[in-house]
Amino acid sequence: MTVGTPSGTGDPGLFTPDSVTWQMHGDPMMWIAGVRALYLQALHPRAVRGVLQNSDFRRDAWGRLLRTADFVGTITYGTAETAERAGARVRKIHSMLRATDPDTGERYGVGEPALLLWVHCAEIDSYLHVLRRSGYPLTDAQADRYAAEHLVSARLVGLDPATVPASRAELAAYFEKVRPELSAGPEARTVDDFLLRPPTHPLLVPARELLWRRVAELAYASLPPYAHELYGRPAPAPAVVTRRLRATGAVLRAIPARVRWALPPKHILRAMARLGPHARPAPPGPAR
């Protein structure tokens, strides 16, 4: 999946324009994939407690989502230096935060490798699943390459890359292994309730019901069957979900890329200015 050698002389960053990541992360379906990742991450009780006990999630969930998106954009399209600084900030924050198990009273760090690994795998799986299912052209080999590329992002948040799944098969084996630890406890219900009905100005409630609720419901529907079982809320038939994902992808991809990328914080446009026009992520087409 190569877009050519950048014409600029700037730092191409940790992934570079030749990576699968550089191309995929320019796709607008990444937003729906990010919401799916939140749903999935909330099913790990220890991980979701670390979030809810260290932040006012209901007041700042939008901020958390945007900060996550900014982190992904920074490590993908920023220079190596800015990516490393972003990773250092995340590691420092994790090192200072603790959570408490309400049943046992155990205090534990939110930066435990097992918890970081769950969050990482839920994100990588969601990005791959939603984009491919929505029609983004990616071969199996490219999907495996994407997972392997993200040993870099795993390292940035404090994981040992040797312990991180680096292919679709390794991801599947990981999820099979961790499933007994998952449940939809009170914290997961809090996340589910927020994602369906995020607080907003009364005048914006109709827009929330018309637009955002559809995004949240589609992200939820794209979860694996075991997640639907844990949440106890059914989803449409898989074929229906796939049609909706493909239709949504077609609509969002019809919006000119320059318009989408002009929204703050403009990571892609800054990368193109630094490296040259050949750094532009290629639009979806035949598998590259």
Rank of each mutant, 00 (worst) to 15 (best):
T16L: 00
T16Q: 04
A69K: 12
Y39A: 05
T21A: 15
D56Q: 13
P45C: 03
G8K: 08
Q41T: 12
P12W: 08
I75R: 02
F15H: 15
P17F: 08
G63C: 11
R67P: 00
A33E: 08
H44Q: 13
T16C: 02
T79F: 01
G73H: 02
E84S: 14
V35C: 12
L38P: 00
E84W: 04
D56V: 09
T68Y: 06
V72N: 12
M30G: 07
W31T: 09
T82N: 10
A33N: 05
T76P: 13
L43K: 06
L40N: 07
T21K: 10
Q53E: 14
L52F: 03
V48H: 06
D60V: 01
R64I: 12
W31C: 01
G26C: 03
D56P: 00
P45A: 11
R58T: 15
L65A: 15
L14I: 09
G78N: 08
G26R: 08
R59E: 15
T82R: 15
Q23V: 04
D18M: 09
L66C: 02
R49D: 05
A80Y: 02
D18P: 00
P17M: 12
I32F: 04
L43V: 01
Q53T: 04
A83H: 01
A83D: 06
D70A: 15
R67C: 07
G26W: 01
A61N: 02
L14G: 10
S19T: 06
G73V: 01
W62F: 15
L66I: 02
D60P: 01
R67Q: 15
W22A: 06
V72S: 14
A86Y: 00
T9F: 09
Y77Q: 12
M29P: 06
P17K: 14
R36Y: 14
Q53S: 13
E81C: 07
P45T: 04
N54C: 05
P12D: 09
G8H: 07
Y77T: 03
L38V: 14
H44D: 10
V51Y: 00
N54K: 07
A83I: 07
A69L: 15
E84L: 14
P17W: 11
G63W: 07
A42V: 01
D70S: 15
P12M: 06
